[in-house]
Write a protein that binds this DNA or RNA. Structure first.
Lengths: 233, 233
DNA sequence: GTGACGAATAAATCTGACTTTTTATTCCTG
DNA sequence: CAGGAATAAAAAGTCAGATTTATTCGTCAC
């Protein structure tokens, strides 16, 4: 599941990254590569590679004579999947989940509308298959099976939109849905209304009905917002 | 304007990154660290740092014994501001601009709706100030002045939404607007209708009229889509 | 033809020395 | 005492060489 797992530098990153995104070092804190290298028992070269990556994520800034300065959170590359994962694993997970759900509510309706125009026959088939999988797992506490098909469904929609920016949000949606199932809400079977909406959405896309696809998706995302007690815009 | 300018490794990145995002190395191409270090006349350490950063952007994958493999474009972190800038500077700039404009059309209406609820008095003031600036620069080929206020306007909206994911798209919107002014369309003064919409949007936000703010923004982004000959969803 | 073993190879890592830049301090001068 | 220039120090930046490790590919036996 972890992306950077391999390599010495990846292991250091998996420790230091979450620490920073968790806010353990307040903005403006100064870290020194030498100390960090000593702490993690790696060479300075490896530590410098780690710092470079953190720098490319705008989590820190490295300046000569000063050290490695932690940047305020509004500078962070919050779209970096790695950063998203680190933050979802940390303390402000609820806040993060809300932000991402609002993002979904903006993106997915438009993506669905585009998918209704651009989806291939194969993608339409995948969509109905996923919807059927959701139906099949919607009762009897088969949450994992339901999640699997739910994630696949939304991934197909985003990909079928034909917009690469949308397509790349597949991982984000997957994280949000997984988070919802595993931690926050949904102790029992999913809302039957939501399942129905997915089935209808698959139909709408197959029928090339962009307006209907958009409207149905809006209902789905509004449901997601309500689950988190967010007022629908 | 460049972010990575400082340091030897930054200069190498500014050459190699654009080359990769421009598709000069087809997916699956293998680069070797040693050769690259030789080519750029830097040490392997520097080259390794560069490769690590490219790897964190999912532009390449580094595996032992194999080398540095270029990944297909659907793997890239297309939300990384650096990657966006590289791609906008490259050959498929038009395609990139379209993707980003569609993204804007999804995000900004929702952001405006939220801004109408959450904007502070100060942000409302900034908004009207920007709108006035746009009006003042809307005639007489004062394109740079117009662009400046246009960018500031949309930045305030995104920030005032209170959603950090939206706020971080300020740079993207800035790039898109700048690209439109400097290269593609808009040879003469901006559309007066667009200017009016911005003024009205500032008013709507100040009046806390979320629905109106959303609708007005939708009209603005639809205009942007039409300029690029994209059918409005 | 399949499987296992081993050698070659290229990246990954470590080490330690040297360089450069930036900041702070000191000291000289007005 | 104040201002500014020279100086020192600190930390990142750079480099080259030695070592380690994992993967691939060829060979050989079964």
């Amino acid at each position: 599941m972890s992306t950077t797992g391999r390599g010495l530098h990846g292991r250091v990153l998996d420790t230091l990254g979450p620490e920073i995104t968790a806010g353990e070092y307040p903005p403006g804190s100064v870290l020194r590569t030498d100390e960090l290298a000593q702490r993690f028992d790696v060479s300075r070269s490896v530590m410098r590679e780690v710092v470079r990556v953190l720098e490319s994520m705008h989590l820190v800034e490295s300046r000569r004579r000063v050290g490695v300065t932690v940047l305020p959170s509004h500078e962070w590359n919050v779209y970096d999947p790695q950063v998203i994962r680190w933050r979802l694993a940390g303390a402000d997970r609820p806040r993060q989940l809300r932000s991402l759900t609002v993002l979904r509510s903006a993106i997915e309706p438009v993506a669905a509308s585009l998918a209704a125009r651009n989806a291939t026959a194969e993608q339409c088939a995948e969509l109905t298959e996923c919807a059927l999988g959701m139906v099949a797992n919607s009762r009897g506490h088969k949450l994992e099976g339901y999640l699997f098909h739910d994630v696949a469904f939304h991934r197909v929609i985003l990909t079928a939109s034909g917009n690469e920016m949308f397509a790349r949000l597949g991982d984000v949606v997957a994280e949000v849905l997984a988070g919802r199932t595993h931690h926050d809400v949904m102790f029992e079977d999913p809302d039957p209304a939501a399942v129905t909406l997915h089935v209808q959405l698959a139909e709408a896309v197959r029928a090339r009905d962009a307006a209907r696809a958009e409207k149905l998706t809006r209902e789905i995302t509004e449901g997601a917002l309500q689950e988190l007690d967010i007022l629908a815009p």
